[in-house]
């Protein structure tokens, strides 16, 4: 796996450019903030992008496994799923890595004749994009579920008194 050795060699450049690519999907004033503010509480979105791209990159080197990449992808996509992005924009960052690898490591791939390894790696990244799509959909479904649940909670007692709710489990006479 010479290609992964190459990727490891260019790791910091690749991650840094990948972060840039994600951050640049936001308006320019926001991108500046997301990149420069380091505090995890003052800049949760930027902090998440930086830390999770590192984790995802390590997974790419290790071999993309659905279970392992899911939490890292989830943290980025959960944010983008409720921001001002279309579904394709929300998950496009996964594909950005493909283009960056070709751009940064491409000449060495050619020299070393690693085309087949590149095809395999890109297939793994495509798979990661599919996992990203699943995660995006589950986030959206969750938004709708939560909205329905909230309507019920906001008038909980009125619905309960009108017998419009299924009783929650509580003490039964024989237990007390």
């Amino acid at each position: 796996m010479k290609l992964k050795t190459l990727l490891a060699k260019h790791k910091s450049a690749l991650i840094s450019r990948w972060v840039d690519a994600i951050v640049e999907t936001y308006p320019s004033e926001t991108a500046k903030f997301l990149k420069n503010k380091k505090d995890q509480f003052s800049n949760p979105v930027g902090h998440t992008i930086v830390s999770e791209t590192k984790n995802l990159f390590d997974q790419v080197l290790e071999g993309v496994d659905r279970e392992k990449v899911t939490p890292f992808l989830d943290r980025i996509i959960r944010i983008r799923a409720i921001q001002e992005f279309t579904p394709s924009q929300a998950i496009s960052f996964v594909f950005s890595l493909k283009y960056l690898i070709r751009e940064i490591v491409g000449p060495e791939i050619d020299t070393e004749d690693l085309d087949q390894e590149l095809v395999d790696l890109e297939a793994a990244l495509d798979f990661m994009a599919l996992v990203a799509f699943d995660i995006y959909m589950s986030c959206r479904e969750q938004v709708y579920d939560i909205r329905a649940k909230e309507v019920q909670q906001n008038a909980f007692l009125l619905l309960k008194r009108a017998n419009l709710l299924v009783e929650k489990p509580g003490p039964k006479p024989e237990d007390s």
């Binding site: 997301l34 003052s42 800049n43 949760p44 001002e84």
Partner: peptide, 17 residues
């Protein structure tokens, strides 16, 4: 004040600065 608003931080929309 620019980066202190929760709506700016969470939405990334600069008009929420």
């Amino acid at each position: 004040c620019a980066d202190k608003c929760h709506f700016f931080i969470g939405s990334g929309d600069p008009k929420n600065m």
